[in-house]
């Protein structure tokens, strides 16, 4: 009945909480779930998600995964919508700086651990990096079948016809697949997986990525993973191959033509401009241009 005394961090952290906030028992439970997720690519492992001091929907799944993985030698980058300075990214980065005392960065290439909401950085990730996604609804079949008892069986039987039907109905109605984000993928030819609400523009980056990709859904209590160099294929049809978004104009700040752009409304007369959603990518390009000009 008596439990072992809680272990405390040797590293000083704020307010008497353990290193990276979670207690060691919780970290072990999450770590075991992560290892199983890596061994079954794309499969959603249930885990006993804890109540975090941030609201559900603000990235509690990603935060728990990061907290279970992060160590004192890590350099953490947190982005939301591709940007390091969006309020929620700032808030999560602060949470780990406070509770884990780790170094943080805005530079993609310097980070060992990147927690993200809705984007994959434009700079290709490398083998020393881990990308942690915040996931709201981990089940790609949820909008077709709301019941967990049913979707669990569909995954077990590899019964994914309903997803193809849904995409094909788009083609019949609109002449193209209308899904623009959270675009479903097959992992290593087996599990159907939600990439989280990233734009489909980012789907090709997931395929055979050198970095390990971990996904945490806190409210739904699921963890899943894509190991490095694993095939991630966006669903499509022979006569309607998968394609990504493109823009008619380059980034108004750095001139990039190959990055995902945010639309910014500049006045109330239809004025708008397009800028890189990945703020680090945009800044790096502008810095390089300045250097070249001098």
């Amino acid at each position: 009945m008596t439990m072992p005394a809680p272990t405390r961090a040797s590293t000083p952290t704020s307010e008497g909480y353990n290193f990276a906030y979670l207690d060691e028992q919780t970290k072990r439970m999450i770590r075991r779930a992560i290892l199983k997720a890596v061994a079954i690519p794309g499969y959603q492992v249930p885990f006993a998600g804890r109540e975090m001091p941030l609201p559900y929907g603000w990235g509690t799944g990603g935060i728990q995964v990061t907290a279970a993985v992060i160590g004192p030698k890590d350099v953490l980058k947190v982005i939301d919508q591709g940007a390091d300075d969006t309020t929620n990214a700032v808030s999560i980065r602060r949470f780990f700086a406070r509770t884990a005392g780790v170094a943080t960065t805005e530079a993609t290439r310097e980070a060992t651990l990147i927690q993200t909401r809705h984007r994959i950085p434009e700079l290709p990730l490398n083998e020393r990096q881990i990308l942690v996604y915040q996931v709201p609804i981990p089940e790609p079949l949820r909008w077709m079948e709301p019941r967990e008892t049913e979707t669990r069986k569909m995954h077990a039987l590899e019964e994914y016809g309903v997803m193809h039907v849904k995409l094909y109905e788009d083609i019949a109605r609109f002449g193209r697949i209308a899904t623009s984000y959270n675009y479903p993928v097959r992992v290593d030819g087996r599990y159907l997986m939600s990439p989280s609400p990233t734009p489909k523009f980012d789907n090709p980056k997931m395929d055979r990525m050198a970095a390990l990709q971990l996904f945490g859904a806190g409210r739904e209590k699921r963890i899943y993973a894509v190991p490095p160099y694993t095939e991630v294929k966006s669903l499509d049809f022979d006569d309607h191959p998968f394609e990504v978004q493109s823009w008619d104009q380059p980034c108004a700040l750095c001139g990039a033509t190959d990055s995902y752009l945010d639309e910014v409304i500049t006045d109330d007369r239809g004025g708008r401009m397009f800028v890189c959603s990945d703020t680090d990518h945009c800044r790096r390009r502008r810095d390089a241009q300045e250097e070249a000009a001098q």
Binding site: S10, N18, I34
Partner: peptide, 12 residues
Amino acid sequence: VTDSQAVFRATL
């Protein structure tokens, strides 16, 4: 705390 984190990362 630190050792189990480091060993977990190696296992991962």
